[in-house]
Write a protein that binds this DNA or RNA. Structure first.
Length: 876
RNA sequence: GCGGGCUUAGCUCAGUGGUAGAGCAUCUCCCUUACAAGGAGGAGGUCGGCGGUUCGACCCCGUCAGCCCGCACCA
C-alpha cells in the first residue's frame, strides 16, 4: 500500500491540489467520439459579474453530481460551462465603478464605455469560474463560452435575422414596462410585484356646465395630469346621462370627455368612474385606442414630469410631482378622501425601481408561433419537467404568454442588426450593409438598442456548440440530456430555450429539466443581507471543505426549498471526517493494492462478509435509482446510512477481532481484508460524485488500476452479491447484541460487567451459525460466554429476538423501580399490538382479501408476540 | 380570481395502502488502541380538523382551516 492517511482530516491540504491535477490531466474534457453513448449538459451561465453565492453552489453541485455519476457510468460526458454578459447588471456595475472616479458613461460615449466593460470583464470576469472550481465542478473549461463571444454573437444575429425575415420579429410603438432608473424597456417577466401599503386618493372632477362632480379613485394622482377622459360603464344608470359630456380636469383645467367603456369600467368597483391616462397605464392605453383618445405623455424616460404636465410640474420627479399635485388638489378642494390601500406595485427586479408604463418604439418577438410547439413537447413528454408539479405552472404561463419585448436601451449587449438610411429605410441583415438596399444611399446607421440578455441565453444549448455551423460538438452533444436550474428562471430562460431550440434546431434542447428549490436558512426564511442569515459558500469551503458543503446541499435536495444552516453543514462535515477515519483504519490493515487484489472468492466467504457485500449492493442499487430520478436526498442518505451505520458501526467492529489477529486464521484474515478493501473501494466510488475531493484523496491510497477515481467505473447492482440469508442472520446478531446492551443499561450494569448469554437456534444450521459467531457476540455485547442451545438457569432475563430465544444471566437480580416500569410498558405495548393482530386475524374479510404474504406476516407476528410476552412476563 | 405546494418527534424534513423514520437538539453511560467531529443506550408523535372509499388510511377521494409560492387583477 501507499503511505497512510494523515491523522487529521484537513481538506485544505488536498482539495486544490487534486482539482489542479484533474484539470491538467484533461479529465473534464470528453472525446470527440460518435460511437460511445454521450451525456451532455450545459451550465446555467452565471452572470460574468457574479460572485459565487449559495444558489450557485447548489445548482452546480447538483450538476456536478449528475455529471460525475454519468462520466463514471461510462458516458462520454460533456458539461459545458460559461458566463452570461448580463446586460443591465454589468452595465450598472461598470457605471458605478466609473462614478467613483467621477465619470459618467455619457462622458465616455458608447464606444469607449463598451471598451471599459470589456476591460472590466477581462480583469474580473473569471472570478466566478475560479470559485466554481473550488466547489469541485468538473466542467470542461476548455469549451467555456461567453454570451458575447464572437461565435455566440453570430448565432444571435442569425436568429434575429431569421425571425425577422419570418415575420416573427417586429418593431412597433407600444406600451411597455419602462424602468426610469435603468432608462430602458424591460419585458413582462422582469417586472416583479411587491405588496405595498399605499394610499388611495379620491379626486373630484367637476362636470362641465353642472354642479355635479365625479369622484375617481387613484393610487397615482400625478398621472391625472395626463388624463384625457373619464370613463363610466354604459349601463350604469348613475352616470348614463353624463356620457358624451365633459369634465374639467382639476389643476390643469382641461376639458376631457366623459366616455362609456364596458371593458375598462366595472360599475361594482369603487365609484364606478375611472380616470383614463392612455400614456401611463396599460388598461387606459387599450381604452384610449378603443375610444380614439389622445395620448398625453406627462412623464419622461427618467421618471420626471414633461412640459405637457404643465409648467409648474415640468422637470419634477414623478414622486415629487405626486406630492405637489396632492397639495394643489387639497388647496383647491378637489381631494375628497384618502384611504390606506394595500396594493401590488410593479418594480424592476434588478433595481427595485417602480416600473413606469410607457409608450415607446420597441422590438418584439411574436411569441404565439413559438409557444405552441413548446407547449406540445412538454405535453407529449418529449421534455419532462421535474418535479412534475412545475408543468402546470409552465402551461399556465405559456398559454397566456404575451409578445416578448426584446429591445433594451443599453450599451452593453448584442446590438440589434437593423440599419437605417437617411431616407428612413430599414435593413435587417447578417452583414453590416454599406448602403441602403432600397435607395442606395450610404451612411447607414445601426439601431442603437441592444437585445435582452435572455435572447442570447435562449440559444445557449446550441450556440455554445458552434451552431449554426454543423460542428462535431453540435453533432455529438446536441441536444443535451438534462437541464438543472432554479425554478425562478423557468420563464426567463427554460421556456425560451425550448422555444428557440425547437424553432432553430428542430429538436428539444434537452429531455429533462430538474428545477431545484431555493436555499433558505435553517428556519425556512429567505437568506438576505439585512437578516444577516446569508451563508457564503466560499467561507464554508474554507472552514469545512467543499465536500461537506456539497454533501449537505445534496442531502436536502429533493426538489423543494432547502433549509440550510451552518450547524447542518457542521453535522455533515462530521460524516466526511468519519469517512476519513474509517478509511484510515482500513488502510492500517490493508496490505494488498486493488490492482493486485484479484477477484473475491464469493463461494468461500463468511456470513458477515456476504452480509456487508449484500448491504452495499442494496445501497448501490438505491443510489443509482435515486440519481436517475434526481432524488439527491435519497441517494446521499442511502450512502450515509450504509457507510456510517452499517459499515462503520457494525462491519468494522465485527471484523476487528479477525483483523487484529484475535480470532481466526491467516486465511480468514486475508478474506476479510479482501472484502474490507472491496467495500471501501466501492463505497468511495459510490460517494465520489457527492464528495469528489476526499474520495479521490483516499482512493489514491488504494492502488487501483485507474489513475483517478474520476475515471473508475461507477458501481452498479450485481445480483450475485445479494444474500438474504446472510442478511437475516446478521440482522438477528445485531438485534441480539442491541438487546443485551439495552438490558444491561436498564439494569444499571456497566460495559465492564460481563454475563452469560443463552441462545437457541431453531435448527442445526442456525445453532452452527451462532457457534461460529459467538466470538462477535461476546466482543460486541461484552459477554463472558455464549451458550448455544443450553438450558438457561432460572431467574435469567428472557426474550425472543427475530424468532430466537435468548436468555441473559445476571450475577444478581437487580430490579429497580424504573426497570420494572419499563418492563411493564414493554409488556403493555406488546399486549396492545397482540390484541390488534388477533383482531385482524379474526376478521374474515382481512383473511379473505389481504394478500397472502400480509396474512402470513401477521400470523408470524402473532406467534412471536405470544412467545415474547410469555418470556417478558417471566422477567417481572 | 386561477394554478401549484405545504401541514408527520422540540427544530428541519423523508416516507410506503398492512399500524411511523432520519438528521440535529435533548437525557444517561463510556476517553474501548480509526474517529470525543466518537461509541452505546434512552425519552419524545392520537402523521392539521372532519367526513368518505377500503378487511385495513399517515398514504387514495371530498371538505374545512392555517401557511407558502407563482400568475392575473388592483380606478
Amino acid at each position: 500500500m501507499k503511505e497512510e492517511l494523515d491523522t487529521r482530516y484537513d481538506p485544505k491540504t488536498f482539495e486544490q491540489r487534486i482539482y489542479a491535477k484533474w484539470e491538467s490531466e484533461g479529465y473534464f474534457t470528453p472525446d470527440i467520439d460518435r460511437d460511445r453513448p454521450k451525456f451532455s449538459i450545459v451550465i446555467p451561465p452565471p452572470n460574468v459579474t457574479g460572485r459565487l453565492h449559495i444558489g450557485h453552489a447548489l445548482v452546480n453541485t447538483l450538476q456536478d453530481i449528475v455529471v460525475r455519476w454519468k462520466r463514471m457510468s461510462g458516458f462520454n460526458t460533456l458539461w459545458l460551462p460559461g458566463t452570461d454578459h448580463a446586460g443591465i447588471a454589468t452595465q450598472m456595475l461598470v457605471d458605478r465603478d466609473l462614478a467613483r472616479q467621477g465619470i459618467s458613461r455619457f462622458d465616455l460615449g458608447r464606444e469607449k464605455f463598451v471598451e471599459k466593460v470589456w476591460e472590466w470583464k477581462e480583469k474580473y470576469g473569471g472570478e466566478i469560474i475560479e470559485q466554481l472550481k473550488r466547489l469541485g465542478a468538473s466542467a470542461d473549461w476548455t469549451r467555456s463560452r461567453f454570451t458575447l463571444d464572437e461565435g455566440l454573437s453570430r448565432a444571435v444575429r442569425y436568429v434575429f435575422v431569421k425571425l425577422y425575415e419570418d415575420g416573427l420579429i417586429y418593431r412597433d410603438l407600444a406600451m411597455v414596462n419602462w424602468c426610469p432608473n435603468c432608462r430602458t424597456a424591460i419585458s413582462d417577466v422582469e417586472v416583479e410585484f411587491r405588496e405595498r401599503e399605499g394610499k388611495l386618493w379620491h379626486i373630484d372632477y367637476p362636470v362641465e356646465g353642472s354642479d355635479r362632480r365625479l369622484t375617481v379613485a387613484t393610487t397615482r394622482p400625478e398621472t391625472m395630469l395626463g388624463d384625457t377622459a373619464l370613463a363610466v360603464h354604459p349601463d350604469d344608470d348613475r352616470y348614463r346621462s353624463l356620457i358624451g359630456r365633459y369634465a374639467i380636469l382639476p389643476i390643469a383645467n382641461r376639458r376631457i370627455p366623459i366616455i362609456a367603456d364596458s371593458i375598462l369600467v366595472d360599475p361594482e368597483f369603487g365609484t364606478g368612474v375611472v380616470k383614463v391616462t392612455p400614456a401611463h397605464d396599460k388598461n387606459d392605453y387599450e381604452a384610449g385606442k378603443r375610444n380614439d383618445l389622445p395620448q398625453l405623455q406627462v412623464i419622461d424616460e427618467a421618471g420626471r414630469m414633461t412640459p405637457e404636465a404643465g409648467a409648474e410640474f415640468a422637470g419634477l420627479d414623478r414622486f415629487d410631482a405626486r406630492k405637489k399635485v396632492l397639495e394643489k388638489l387639497e388647496e383647491q378642494g378637489f381631494l375628497s378622501s384618502v384611504k390606506t390601500y394595500q396594493n401590488a406595485v410593479g418594480v424592476h427586479g434588478k433595481c427595485d425601481t417602480d416600473v413606469e408604463p410607457m409608450i415607446s418604439r420597441q422590438w418584439f418577438v411574436k411569441i404565439d408561433p413559438l409557444a405552441r410547439p413548446a407547449i406540445d413537447v412538454v405535453r407529449d413528454g418529449t421534455i419532462q419537467i421535474i418535479p412534475e408539479s412545475w408543468e402546470a405552472t409552465y402551461f399556465n404561463w405559456m398559454e397566456n404568454i404575451h409578445d416578448w419585448t426584446i429591445s433594451r436601451q443599453l450599451w452593453w449587449g448584442h446590438r440589434i442588426p437593423a440599419f437605417y438610411c437617411a431616407n428612413g429605410h430599414m435593413t435587417v441583415s447578417m452583414d453590416d450593409p454599406a448602403q441602403c438596399p432600397q435607395c442606395g444611399s450610404t451612411g447607414m446607421r445601426q439601431e442603437t438598442d441592444v437585445l435582452d440578455t435572455w435572447f442570447s441565453s435562449a440559444l445557449w444549448p446550441f450556440s455554445t456548440m458552434g451552431w449554426p455551423d454543423n460542428t462535431p460538438d453540435y453533432e455529438i452533444f446536441y441536444p443535451t440530456d438534462v437541464l438543472i436550474t432554479g425554478f425562478d428562471i423557468l420563464f426567463f430562460w427554460v421556456a425560451r430555450m425550448i422555444m428557440m431550440g425547437l424553432r432553430f434546431t428542430g429538436r428539444a434542447p434537452f429531455h429533462q429539466v430538474f428545477l431545484n428549490g431555493l436555499v433558505r436558512d435553517e428556519h425556512g426564511d429567505k437568506m438576505s443581507k439585512t437578516k444577516g442569515n446569508v451563508i457564503d459558500p466560499l467561507d464554508v469551503i474554507e472552514e469545512v471543505g467543499a465536500d461537506a458543503l456539497r454533501f449537505t446541499l445534496a442531502i436536502f435536495a429533493s426538489g423543494r426549498d432547502i433549509p440550510l444552516g451552518k450547524s447542518r453543514i457542521q453535522g455533515y462535515s462530521a460524516f466526511v471526517n468519519k469517512i476519513w477515519n474509517a478509511s484510515r483504519f482500513a488502510l492500517m490493515h490493508l496490505d494488498v493494492e486493488l490492482k493486485d487484489a484479484g477477484a473475491i472468492d464469493r463461494d468461500n466467504l463468511r456470513s458477515i462478509e456476504r452480509w456487508i457485500l449484500s448491504r452495499l449492493n442494496e445501497t448501490t442499487k438505491a443510489v443509482n435509482k435515486s440519481l436517475s430520478a434526481f432524488r439527491f436526498d435519497e441517494a446521499s442518505n442511502a450512502i450515509y446510512q450504509f457507510f456510517w451505520h452499517e459499515f462503520c458501526d457494525w462491519y468494522i467492529e465485527m471484523v476487528k477481532p479477525v483483523l487484529l489477529g484475535k480470532h481466526g486464521d491467516v486465511g480468514e484474515q486475508k478474506k476479510a481484508k479482501r472484502v474490507l478493501l472491496e467495500v471501501l473501494d466501492r463505497s468511495l466510488r459510490l460517494l465520489h460524485p457527492f464528495m469528489p475531493f476526499v474520495t479521490e484523496e483516499i482512493w489514491q491510497k488504494l492502488g487501483g488500476v485507474e489513475a483517478s477515481i474520476m475515471t473508475a467505473p461507477y458501481p452498479i447492482g450485481e445480483e450475485v452479491l445479494e444474500d438474504s440469508e446472510a442478511e437475516r442472520m446478521i440482522a438477528a446478531v445485531k438485534s441480539i447484541i442491541t438487546t443485551v446492551r439495552n438490558v444491561r443499561a436498564e439494569r444499571g450494569f456497566t460495559p465492564k460487567d460481563r454475563f452469560r448469554l443463552f441462545i437457541s437456534g431453531s435448527d442445526g444450521r442456525e445453532s452452527n451459525f451462532f457457534n461460529t459467531y459467538a466470538y462477535i457476540l461476546t466482543d460486541l455485547a461484552r459477554l463472558s460466554e455464549v451458550v448455544i442451545d443450553g438450558q438457561p438457569p432460572p431467574g435469567t432475563h428472557q426474550d425472543v429476538i427475530e424468532g430466537f430465544h435468548i436468555a441473559i444471566e445476571f450475577p444478581e437480580r437487580v430490579v429497580t423501580k424504573e426497570q420494572l416500569e419499563r418492563t411493564q410498558r414493554e409488556i403493555e405495548k406488546s399486549q396492545k399490538e397482540l390484541a390488534s393482530v388477533e383482531a385482524r386475524l379474526a376478521n374474515e374479510q382481512f383473511v379473505k382479501n389481504a394478500p397472502a404474504a400480509v396474512v402470513q406476516q401477521a400470523q408470524a407476528r402473532l406467534s412471536e408476540l405470544r412467545q415474547r410476552l410469555e418470556k417478558l412476563q417471566q422477567n417481572q
